[in-house]
């Protein structure tokens, strides 16, 4: 406990470093997954090349998620030519994981939209583009939210792994605490990592309430994030 009180500045700095890696990765994986998931879902029921494209998008994203994090952070410099201890490797690696989870979640979310509603929208004169933004995406929102919540929690937790390479995050409190035999430092890192995960999750839920007020009125039947991972 003494260590924590004497090193509040260091802990604050590590927390900001942690957020600087995790938050961009979460946002990027969401933004990039929506178009990829749309393609995967759009051509799921077609045939020929397009079906193959859709199937392979889902298969590649599943396979990507199987790749262990530390080896990925180590292999990225060899592929994209960055430095071994560059935080950008961790941001890219975590974005890839986020995409791996979110592409399937996005495809499932878009598939969950009632086809009758889509056809009614078309019948009312929505163009394909505006139908996507004004009808499909909002209706897919709840499943998308469940997906990005899972991504957010796992990204915050995996950010610590970069510390093994010396990349600054709360994970450095683990490696440093182990080397210098300071349990308080490790506990501080664990507690703060969980706290960041909980706060970001709260922000996502709040965004969901603000963007999808109609769901708040109905009884929220949240899909448990755990089940989503099992299907991933």
């Amino acid at each position: 406990m003494n260590w924590v009180l004497n090193n509040l500045a260091l802990i604050g700095e590590r927390t900001l470093d942690h957020l600087a890696i995790a938050v961009p990765a979460i946002i990027l994986s969401f933004v990039l997954s929506v178009p990829i998931g749309w393609v995967a879902n759009r051509y799921r029921a077609s045939n020929g090349v397009l079906l193959w494209l859709s199937g392979s998008l889902l298969a590649v994203s599943g396979l990507l998620y199987a790749i262990p994090s530390l080896p990925l952070f180590l292999a990225l410099p060899a592929i994209i030519g960055t430095g071994l201890r560059d935080p950008i490797n961790v941001v890219i690696g975590l974005t890839l994981y986020g995409i791996a989870l979110m592409v399937r979640a996005t495809a499932d979310a878009l598939a969950s939209v009632d086809p009758n509603v889509e056809q009614s929208a078309t019948a009312m004169g929505f163009s394909g583009w505006s139908r996507f933004w004004k009808v499909e995406l909002p209706l897919a929102g709840p499943v998308l939210l469940a997906g990005i919540r899972v991504v957010s929690v796992s990204t915050v937790s995996l950010t610590t792994v970069g510390a093994v390479l010396g990349i600054e995050s709360l994970g450095l409190l683990f490696t440093d605490g182990l080397q210098r035999n300071i349990p308080g430092e490790i506990y501080a890192g664990i507690v703060l990592t969980i706290l960041i995960a909980v706060v970001l999750d709260g922000i996502l839920v709040l965004c969901g309430r603000l963007l999808m007020p109609w769901r708040h009125a109905a009884a929220p039947k949240q899909q448990a994030p755990t089940e989503l991972v099992v299907n991933a």
């Binding site: 899972v150 792994v161 683990f174 490696t175 605490g177 349990p183 664990i190 969980i194 909980v198 994030p225």
Partner: peptide, 22 residues
Amino acid sequence: VLVSGGVRALPTLGLISILGLS
């Protein structure tokens, strides 16, 4: 659901570090 969700947020590296110390 709570246990599964909560444990997911727990960083494995931190857990290994603290167990390694004890």
